[in-house]
Amino acid sequence: MIRVLIVDDDPMVAKWNETYVSKLNGFQAAGVVHTYADAKEKLRHGQVDLVLLDIYIGADNGLQLLQELRAESFWEGDVMLITAASDVDSVKKAMRYGAVDYIMKPFDFDRFREAMEKYKSRTKLFAEHEQIDQDRLDHQWFPKVEPVQEDLPKGLSVSTLKRVEEGVAALDKKAFSTEEVADVTGISRVTVRKYLKYLAETGALGERLTYGAVGRPQHLFLLEE
């Protein structure tokens, strides 16, 4: 169970954050405090894994607290910023001081849940492995950025193109027909052929005609190296 300390001087916002935490499996609120002094006291004597930290609390600045936590050795947990601060300097300092995420107010529950689930997944990874290979590390911390999809020709959609590409991958064959891709995807042959022709035109696939002993030649698409 990941124990979460909520640090925010607005009682209503703090209560909302506590409610959000309670909705997530694997997390429990370890307390709510409204000053940085109380936060440091709680971290010195309580059991806390993750701090949800607001930057602006009165005249104090949460980035200073974050810097102090990293400089001192009495607590070795993680900090996630939840703040209205949107200036670049604050974001850069938060990342420099080791914040695991930065959520800007106002935010919705989906964004909060995404951040927390990602944090839980990383925590689980560290708990289950004494050593981490590159693939696991990349998956959790440095996900590959997919290239931006260029505008498709009129009548083609990104979602259907993705299904066709997944169908081609599922066949795991160097050469395949329109019918085979249609069968594995459940998309009509006419539609599949249109997308396969597009992939061939862009150079992603090759094409060839295969002549049998009798009948019409078969048109195959090629998954080239």
Score class of each variant (00 low, 15 high):
Ala29His: 04
Trp75Gln: 07
Val88Ser: 06
Asp38Thr: 11
Glu68Trp: 07
Asp49Ala: 11
Ala99Asp: 04
Val33Phe: 06
Ser73Val: 10
Arg44Ile: 07
Glu72Leu: 02
Gly26Cys: 12
Val88Ala: 07
Gly98Cys: 05
Glu76Cys: 12
Gly26Asn: 11
Gly77Val: 07
Glu114His: 12
Ala59His: 13
Phe74Trp: 08
Gly98Val: 09
Asn61Pro: 00
Ala29Asn: 13
Ala94Pro: 04
Leu81His: 00
Val88Thr: 14
Val33Thr: 08
Gln64Leu: 13
Asp108Met: 04
Lys92Pro: 00
Gly26Glu: 09
Leu81Tyr: 00
Tyr56Gln: 10
Ile103Val: 15
Arg44Gly: 11
Glu114Phe: 10
Asn25Val: 12
Asp108Lys: 05
Asp87Phe: 00
Arg111Pro: 02
Val33Tyr: 03
Val79Gly: 00
Glu76Lys: 15
Met116Pro: 02
Asp38Cys: 08
Lys92Asn: 09
Lys93Ile: 09
Gln47Ala: 15
Lys92Phe: 04
Leu81Cys: 03
Gly58Ser: 06
Glu114Asp: 13
Asp54His: 07
Glu76His: 15
Met104Glu: 09
Asn25Gly: 15
Ala39Leu: 07
Asp89Ile: 09
Tyr36Ala: 12
Leu69Trp: 05
Trp75Pro: 04
Lys92Cys: 06
Glu41Arg: 15
Lys93Val: 09
Thr83Tyr: 00
Lys93Arg: 15
Gly77Leu: 06
Gly58Thr: 04
Leu66Tyr: 00
Val100Met: 12
Thr83Pro: 02
Arg70His: 08
Glu72Ser: 09
Gly31Phe: 02
Met80Thr: 02
Lys42Ala: 15
Val88Ile: 14
Gly58Asn: 03
Leu52Val: 08
Leu43Ala: 08
Val91Trp: 00
Ala39His: 02
Trp75Ser: 07
Thr35Met: 07
Asp38Gln: 13
Asn25Lys: 14
Met104Pro: 03
Tyr36Asp: 05
Asp108Val: 04
Tyr36Leu: 14
Val33Ser: 04
Gly31Tyr: 02
Ala85Thr: 07
Pro106Ala: 13
Asp78Trp: 08
Asn25Asp: 14
Phe74Val: 03
Ala115Ser: 13
Gly77Ile: 05
Leu52Thr: 05
Asp38Asn: 12
Gln67Phe: 08
Leu81Met: 15
Phe107Ser: 00
Gln64Cys: 10
Gln64Ile: 13
Ala84Phe: 05
Gln47Asn: 14
Thr35Ala: 05
Gly58Pro: 03
Arg96Glu: 14
Phe112Asp: 00
Ser86Met: 11
Arg113Ile: 05
Leu43Phe: 10
Asp49Ile: 11
Val91Met: 11
Ile57Lys: 00
Lys42Ser: 12
Leu66Ser: 02
Lys93Thr: 08
Met116Gly: 04
Glu72Val: 02
Gln28Ala: 15
His34Glu: 13
Val33Met: 10
Met104Asp: 01
Asp38Phe: 02
Val100Cys: 15
Ser86Glu: 12
Lys105Thr: 09
Lys93Ala: 09
Ala59Glu: 14
Gln64Tyr: 05
Arg70Tyr: 05
Lys42Leu: 07
Asp60Gly: 09
Asp54Gly: 06
Tyr97Arg: 10
Glu68Cys: 10
Ser90Met: 10
Asp110Cys: 06
Gly46Tyr: 11
Lys92Glu: 12
Tyr36Trp: 11
Gln28Ile: 13
Lys40Pro: 06
Ile57Thr: 01
Asp108Gln: 11
Val51Thr: 03
Val100Thr: 15
Gly98Ala: 08
Pro106His: 13
Asp87Cys: 01
Pro106Thr: 10
Met95Trp: 13
Tyr36Lys: 08
Val32Glu: 01
Ile82Pro: 01
